[in-house]
Design a binder for these strands. Sequence first.
DNA 1: GTACATTATGTCACATGTGATATATTCTAT
DNA 2: ATAGAATATATCACATGTGACATAATGTAC
Lengths: 107, 107
Amino acid sequence: MRKEKRQKLERQGWKIGNAADFLELTPEESAFVELKVALSKFLKERRKQSTITQIELAKLLKSSQSRIAKMEAGDPSVSIDLLIRSLLAMGATNKDLAQTISTSKLV
Amino acid sequence: MRKEKRQKLERQGWKIGNAADFLELTPEESAFVELKVALSKFLKERRKQSTITQIELAKLLKSSQSRIAKMEAGDPSVSIDLLIRSLLAMGATNKDLAQTISTSKLV
DNA sequence: GTACATTATGTCACATGTGATATATTCTAT
DNA sequence: ATAGAATATATCACATGTGACATAATGTAC
């Protein structure tokens, strides 16, 4: 039930990352969401720096434009596995990932 | 096909982490596997330090003994999401995760 | 403002991950 | 060697993730 709630709120413009108070997220769940958001942002940054479109990136990753959009939005339907595999395929190093993760909020 | 191949080899005692040469793994795939293995080992270490059994940890994580075993073995059937959620539930911090990831092989 | 590119959102068939259960294997004492 | 605890492996019904497609919303020039 909580996931649907989050999805609904996000749909209406609420951004996760500051929503732990509204939704009943445990600290672990919060940390997990923050971590996903951090990876999402990193993915978006990297793509923008390459000045390629979502469509081009989708082709590179053998995925689809819509899924790239969802990845960058931190959509609940995307796994950390996919985010990490994508980032690695884009040339990110484990150190890049580690830094992204360590700088995500809530320690 | 490659996944089945890896599963078969692992079943026969081959340890991934040095198998990139045998299997046709791209550098990204290798990095991904290494990362998973690193998280697996970290999970096992943490549990052993708490001197609890897989059964007890399974109860804590609302999972099952068999899945804990597979997590600790880096089984292909376990996602990074699950590993990370489990570690967070065990009290690991994002920094712990970051360090684990940055020290996984293949940069 | 309108044509066009880019990004976002909804939906769905199919793929992959998950807890549970059963059973096999390994470990640790005695 | 034997028993019992701990861990590993196999399998499966059900849950979640994924690429693809359609379509909506937003941006960017003219």
